[in-house]
Design a protein around this nucleic acid. Sequence first.
RNA 1: GGGGGGAUUCCCGAGUGGCCAAAGGGAGCAGACUGUAAAUCUGUUGCGGAACGCUUCGGUAGUUCGAAUCUACCUCCCCCCA
Length: 410
Amino acid sequence: MTPQLTVDEQMEILRRGTLEIVPEDELREKLVKSQKTGVPLRLKLGLDPTAPDIHIGHAVVLRKLRQFQDIGHEVVILIGDFTARIGDPSGRSVTRPLLSSEEIEANARTYADQYCRILDADKTKVLFNSEWLGKLDFADVIRVSAKVTVARVLERDDFANRLSDGRPIGLHEILYPVCQAYDSVALKSDVELGGMDQKFNILMGRDLQRESGQEPQVAMFMPILVGLDGVQKMSKSLGNYVGITEAPNEMFGKLMSIPDDLMPQYFELCTDVPMNEIEDIVYGLSNGKLHPMNIKKRLAREIVAIYHSEESAMEAQLEFEKVFSSGELPTDIPVCNIPTDIMKDGKIWAPKLLTFTGTASSNSDARRLIEQGAVSIDGERISDAGSDITIADGQVLRVGKLKFVKLQIN
RNA sequence: GGGGGGAUUCCCGAGUGGCCAAAGGGAGCAGACUGUAAAUCUGUUGCGGAACGCUUCGGUAGUUCGAAUCUACCUCCCCCCA
C-alpha cells in the first residue's frame, strides 16, 4: 500500500483498537530498525487447528496483521497442531477432542481459504508447530523447561486461581505456555498478537527468547469482539457471530441487530473508518444529532463492503429497508415444491405445510407457530392450526419475521 | 489405596413413590411495542391430525397397582484424605 509512512504514522495505525502493546517502545524500535535495514518484521499469530469458520471477531486480529503487512512486514500463521494435544488451559476447562492429522490439515486449508480475504497471501506463511515441537526429545523438554521457574508459571491468573480453589492442574498443562513460548523461539518472531487471555503465554515467549539469546518479541493484545447479543464474546458456538464468508444480506441483517451501544466498538475494530470520524459519530449519537439507525446502517455497510463490495453493501441496505422497514417481500425467496399428492382438493393441512417446507421442525412446533399468529400466506394470517387451507401456485408463505417460502405446486 | 458427592428436558438447576412432560432462571422462538434493534410486556419451548395419547430424567435389570424419585449392577464426572 503506502510504503513510506513515518514510524509515528505506523504506530498510530497499529495502536488503533489494541488493548496493550508490551512494551510499546520496543515495537517502535523494531519498526525503526526494520525501516532502516529493509528487513521485514515477523509477526506471529497462533491458531487452534479447530474452528474453521472465521468470523468478524477473529478478523479483528487478522486485520491488525494486515495493517502490518501493508507496512511491509510478514505474517506467520502458526497452526498449533502439536499443542492442541495438550489443550490450552486458558479460560475454558473443557477438554478438546483430539484431531487426526488429516482433520487438522483439512481445517488448515479451510483457514487458508478464508484468511486470504483479509491477509495478503504473498506475505503470509502457514506453519505447524508439530514441525519442531514434535522433534524435541525428553531431554530437550527438560532443558527448555529448566528456563522457566514454577513461580513464574504459577503467577498466571488461571493457575493461581485453580491452585487456591483446590482445582486440579495437570502437569502437562504447565508445559503449555512453555510450548507456545518455544514456538516464538523457533520462529524468531518479532511481534506476537493475541487476546488478553494469551497474555501470559505470549509474555513467556519473551522470556524464553531472551534466554535463548534472541531479541524478545513484542506482545500485542487485541480485544475480544463482543457478539451480536452484546453480552458474550463473538463465537460460532454461541451463534452470535457474523462469518466473513456470509452473503451481504445476511451480514447486513445481523449487524443491524446489534445493540446500539456496541456501535463505537464495532466501528473501531471492524471498519476502516478513521478514528476522528468515529469520535464525531459517538458525539453525534450522544447529543441526539445523529439517528442511531442511520449510523448502524453505515456501520453495516462499512463492514459488508470490506468482505464484498460497496455496491453489494448498498444493495444489502436497500434489501434490508425493503423487507424490514417497508414490510415488503424479499427479492430472493426460496421456492418449495409442493407435490399435489400431499394435498386434497387444493387444500393442505396447515401444520403439514409448515413441516413440509421446513419452516417448522415438527407438527407440534407448527401448531404453536400458527396459534401464536406467526404464519401467513400472501399476507393473510392463518390462525386455525387444525384447518385445511387452500393454497395456490406462487403464493408466499411467511413464518415469523424471517422465514419466507414461495409455494410451487406441481 | 480409603471416604464422600453427583449425572434431570438447549444450558443452569428444583424435584426423593402417584398431584411430573417435570418448578425457577438463562437462552431460543412467536406476538405487541419500536428504529430493524435493545429494553419492556405477553405467550411459548418433547412428540403425535392432539381437550386424548405416547416417549423422556446417564445405562441395564428389578421392586411396586404406580418410579425422575426405591434396589442391584454398570458407565462417566467431581471432591476430600493418603
